[in-house]
Nucleic acid binder design. Structure first.
Lengths: 120, 120
DNA sequence: CAGGATCCTTTACGATACTG
DNA sequence: CAGTATCGTAAAGGATCCTG
């Protein structure tokens, strides 16, 4: 009984560590959260629109990050047959499940500012 | 009235972006969450203990990350006058405010696994 | 318009050896 | 014990030019 409990708790802990590693691997980098945040906000954006809205990013980075996000099922990509071709990016339903994380991070970032400001 | 609303929402949006940038700057890297998680779990750990508990990290990285975290008020460092000197690291109260973020990320990491597993 | 190719700079990270 | 110094590699990020 005790043994089972220990094993379970150990497994839970390992699971958490692996889960955090997974998540960070997918979400790491300078731009992921900005892109996702932008897409959650304004569904269906074209490449150029994202390039403008995600402040400071370059075309290469945006392209690469979008591919990553698409590969991980967080963003969908639709090519419209116009000419010249336009492409629409959209957050997936699963991608939307990141909203709570982004909210928490934003909240904490604000709290951090207040804290540093108050204690300096 | 409309104008005020727009300005407010724009300011709020900017604030969020900056907050996320702040937070990610402080929390980015391969090890921050693991170290913080470990310290939240088991208050008062020495350098060597952390080196053992944070799986895979090297002394140089640990040292540098701890300095970062201390500088950002997330971790406190206490030198005990024993010989040879031992040092205790401890999460600060403010550092503990990261717990919700870590929880959300861990939750999401698990959900991600399930999602990918189910859709593949 | 949407991006790939190329080249370059800068960080991140890691192994090893060494010191108070 | 708790680090620092040094060196080296790999990955991230960016500027510019080019193409269907």
């Amino acid at each position: 009984m005790k043994k089972v409990a220990v094993i379970n708790s150990s497994e839970t802990c390992q699971t958490r560590i692996v889960a955090i590693k997974d998540a960070m691997e997918i979400l790491s980098g300078k731009w992921k959260f900005h892109i996702i945040g932008t897409l959650i906000h304004g569904e269906k954006l074209r490449f150029m629109e994202l390039l403008r809205e995600v402040d400071g990013i370059g075309a290469k980075m945006l392209s690469k990050e979008l591919q990553d996000l698409e590969m991980n099922h967080l963003v969908s990509r639709t090519v419209l047959n116009t000419k010249p071709a336009t492409v629409e990016y959209q957050i997936t339903d699963f991608g939307k499940s990141l909203a709570p994380i982004i909210d928490e991070i934003a909240k904490w970032g604000i709290a951090y500012r207040n804290f540093v400001y108050t204690n300096s």
